[in-house]
């Protein structure tokens, strides 16, 4: 990277420095113009443009409705006294929001565990076991990876009504698990196939059962992929709106659904909206910053969702 810049110092262009093939073309001049400082400035501006939206929400969540509906959040620069924790104390005493936060946890944790467990079992079978129809089923899983969940909404709403679990948390969990599975199987199968054959053969020769191999060999060796999947599924489920919107009611709604119901009066509900949206962001952001390496790996490993 640095070699070409040191090769041609910009101030003195000695004629012998450039062989005939090195004549600067127009695009090259454009790229030359994009020297490091310009790149730095451009990326700095982009970074600012990416930060300002979240920053605005964050600051708005500390302002009263009156302030937020009469002046912009950037006015805190000149009048920082207007900031208040009132919205947060209000929000935490708002039982609709707090119980929806609890619902989110009750939905997300079992979903993540089930997706990882069921996905790992199937992923192991697809990676290391011989059974008839294996390749066909694997292709089917890849096809299902892209199926829009809209095709399942109407029949499952009916099915849940018939089973009597419409509006209940288990119903939401099952839906999330089913639509999380193709990605889980695909991701874990790909990772498990990279486990060295000798490791598995050694365990099999020792007479270990498949279940034992799964628990003692596959799960520990597959930990990085499982972590990636778990993070991904956690964020995916936590951030869901559509499934919650359809399959939950006022008692079982997750935080995203509770917040969206305030959207109709955007201006007058801006205190609940901004604070609620920020609270709903906190958990994913903690998970993201703590485990972002795994999250990125999950995206890289199977990016079809």
């Amino acid at each position: 990277m640095t070699a070409p810049t040191t090769e041609r110092p910009p101030t003195t262009p000695p004629p012998q420095a450039g062989p005939p093939g090195k004549r600067r073309t127009v695009p090259q001049r454009i790229l030359g113009f994009f020297s490091k400082s310009v790149v730095n400035v451009v990326l700095l501006i982009m970074a600012l443009m990416w930060v300002i939206p979240s920053l605005g929400l964050f600051i708005t969540s500390f302002r009263t409705v009156g302030d937020a509906s009469s002046s912009g959040w950037w006015t805190v620069v000149t009048a920082p006294a207007q900031l208040t924790l009132q919205n947060y104390t209000d929000l935490l005493s708002n039982s609709t929001i707090t119980s929806s936060l609890l619902n989110s946890v009750l939905i997300v944790v079992p979903t993540t565990v089930l997706v990882v467990l069921v996905g790992a079992l199937a992923g192991y079978a697809f990676a290391w076991m011989e059974f008839p129809g294996r390749d066909g089923l694997l292709i089917a899983v890849i096809v299902l990876l892209a199926v829009p969940l809209q095709v399942a909404l109407i029949p499952i709403a009916r099915l849940y009504g018939w089973l009597g679990i419409f509006g209940s948390i288990p119903g939401v969990i099952l839906f999330h698990v089913a639509f999380g599975l193709p990605f889980a199987i695909f991701l874990l199968r790909n990772f498990f196939t990279q486990i060295p054959r000798e490791t598995l053969e050694a365990a099999r020769v020792d007479g270990a059962s498949e279940w034992r191999i799964f628990v003692r060999v596959i799960l520990p060796l597959g930990a990085p992929a499982i972590a990636s999947l778990a993070i991904f599924q956690f964020l995916w489920t936590w951030n869901d709106l559509l499934i919650g919107l359809i399959f939950t009611n006022a008692e079982s709604q997750p935080v995203t659904v509770a917040i969206q119901s305030q959207l109709r009066q955007f201006g007058s509900n801006i205190d609940v909206l901004s604070t609620g949206a920020f609270v709903s962001m906190v958990i994913p952001l903690i998970v993201f910053f703590a485990f972002q390496r795994y999250f990125v790996q999950a995206l890289l490993a199977g990016s079809n969702k």
């Binding site: 982009m46 970074a47 990416w50 930060v51 939206p53 979240s54 605005g56 929400l57 708005t60 964020l235 936590w238 951030n239 869901d240 709106l241 995203t256 917040i259 969206q260 959207l263 955007f266 801006i270 909206l273 901004s274 949206a277 920020f278 709903s280 962001m281 994913p284 952001l285 998970v287 993201f288 910053f289 972002q292 999250f295 990125v296």
Partner: peptide
């Protein structure tokens, strides 16, 4: 990290942000 961060938050939160 800055550019990637919005991937972690819900589209609902992003929607509230952009509507504001």
């Amino acid at each position: 990290l800055i550019i990637f961060m919005p991937m972690a938050i819900s589209m609902l939160a992003a929607g509230v942000i952009f509507r504001g």
